[in-house]
Design a protein around this nucleic acid. Sequence first.
DNA 1: CAGGATCCTGGGGGATACTG
DNA 2: CAGTATCCCCCAGGATCCTG
Lengths: 137, 137
Amino acid sequence: MTSPHEQNGQCVPDVFDAECSARHALELISGKWSVLILTALAEAPRRNGALLRRIGGISQKMLTQTLKDLERNGLVERHDLRTVPLHVEYRLSALGSSLSATLIALDRWAERNFPELDAARARHDAARLGPVAQTDS
Amino acid sequence: MTSPHEQNGQCVPDVFDAECSARHALELISGKWSVLILTALAEAPRRNGALLRRIGGISQKMLTQTLKDLERNGLVERHDLRTVPLHVEYRLSALGSSLSATLIALDRWAERNFPELDAARARHDAARLGPVAQTDS
DNA sequence: CAGGATCCTGGGGGATACTG
DNA sequence: CAGTATCCCCCAGGATCCTG
């Protein structure tokens, strides 16, 4: 069939198309933990424990799970120095590296603009709770 | 207290800090639907129905819900032409516009590199399922 | 140290029907 | 047309315990 996106896997790349693989790619790289893990690995190759310490609020389970997913999709490489005690290091693949600048830009934007978001939210919420009497302080 | 990030709301901006507002900002702007909505609005101001049609796979519920969240945080502006039938238009705020380039870069990366992800995934899965004897169909 | 296996809960998110 | 309200399911993800 000559459908617009050839639903079998090949499609005109479009993140707006729910069936296109590009959408899955986008959801992977913009995932809650993916962004942080990829950014942390962009700073430097890291071990499991180091990642756990670097990324506040992540659980061992989600770290392992997300790392596996990223590795499966070729964004992260797992290097197992077969020693005892175990020593495993994660690093970005070339593909992963090609993404890091954009992800870091995203982080930077959040770090530079969150006060604006906070302020907007405060204003919005204040307006909803008390649309009247805003004459002082 | 002079804790490193002043857990009351003011902190040294760090997305890796689970308590920092920058983290919340990051999670908002990297949300599954947020990215697509913001990108769609970066293309042009749009109405509810237009967004629904533009963004494949989104439900009315998630669209409304995410739009409200984005508006609350000052990234999107809602313009209600008080007509009947109802006519509401959404557009990026200045703050939202300052983010669009990065989000579009993210989309573009996904659209340009998803074949690499697909290939890596295929390789990875093939290796796991049958590391042996892959000579025929 | 890296990470598998299990159990369990909250809420993300779909479907459907209704309203101004 | 642009939403709101309800019901309900499913799974992301935490807590805990166990292994190589």
